[in-house]
Simulated scan of single mutants.
Amino acid sequence: MVVSDQGGGTGALVTGMAWSTALGSDLDEVWQALLSGATGVAPVPSAHPLRNDQAAALPDLPMDLDPERRQYELGSRTLRAAVADAGLDVTDPRLRLVVGTSYGSHLDVPPVGLDRWGEVLATGLGMTRRPLMVSTACSAASDAILVGAALIAEGEEDVCVVGGVDVLTQAKRLGHSALGTMSPTALRAFDESHDGTILGEGAAFLVLERARSAQARGARVRGRLSGTGSANDAAGPTAPDPSGDTVVRAVTAALAAADRGTGEVGVLHAHGSGTPVNDDVESRGFARTFTNGAAPVVFATKGAFGHTLGATGALGAVALLLALRDKRVPPVPGLSTVMPGFPLPLPAGAAPLPFTGDVGLSVTLGFGGFTTCLALEVPA
Rank of each mutant, 00 (worst) to 15 (best):
I145V: 09
S36A: 04
P45N: 05
Q32Y: 02
A12I: 07
E119V: 07
P45L: 12
G37Y: 09
W117G: 09
G100M: 14
R80S: 13
A22R: 03
G87L: 06
P93A: 11
L34H: 10
G7N: 12
A12V: 08
W19S: 01
Y72V: 03
L74F: 04
A56K: 07
R130W: 07
S135K: 06
P43H: 13
G126L: 03
A149V: 02
G87F: 05
T91M: 10
S76Y: 04
V120F: 01
V44K: 10
L13Q: 08
P59C: 04
G7I: 00
G113A: 08
H48G: 10
S46H: 00
T128D: 01
R129S: 10
V98P: 11
A38L: 02
L13H: 10
D143A: 00
D64Y: 02
L35F: 07
S102V: 15
A144S: 09
T39W: 15
R94G: 12
A150R: 10
R77I: 00
L88A: 10
Q71T: 09
T128L: 12
L58T: 08
D5G: 02
L114K: 15
A47I: 11
A47G: 15
G24P: 04
V14E: 14
G87T: 03
D92I: 09
R69M: 10
L13N: 02
P93I: 02
D66H: 13
V120G: 01
V134N: 01
L97N: 11
G7D: 09
A38E: 02
D143Y: 01
S142T: 03
A38H: 13
D5I: 00
L74N: 10
V98L: 06
R77F: 05
E29H: 13
T21G: 10
C138T: 06
T101Q: 14
V147S: 02
R116F: 15
L61S: 12
L34S: 03
R130M: 14
W19P: 00
L146K: 01
A137T: 03
T136L: 13
Q54D: 10
S76N: 01
S105C: 04
L107Y: 03
D92E: 05
L79C: 14
R94S: 15
V41R: 06
P49A: 13
L121A: 03
V44D: 02
A42R: 15
M133C: 06
L125K: 14
G75V: 00
P93Y: 01
P110H: 06
L95E: 01
V120N: 02
A18M: 09
A33E: 15
P111G: 08
T91V: 12
P93D: 06
E119N: 08
P45F: 11
S36P: 00
L114F: 15
D89P: 04
P110F: 09
V99C: 08
G75Q: 09
D26A: 13
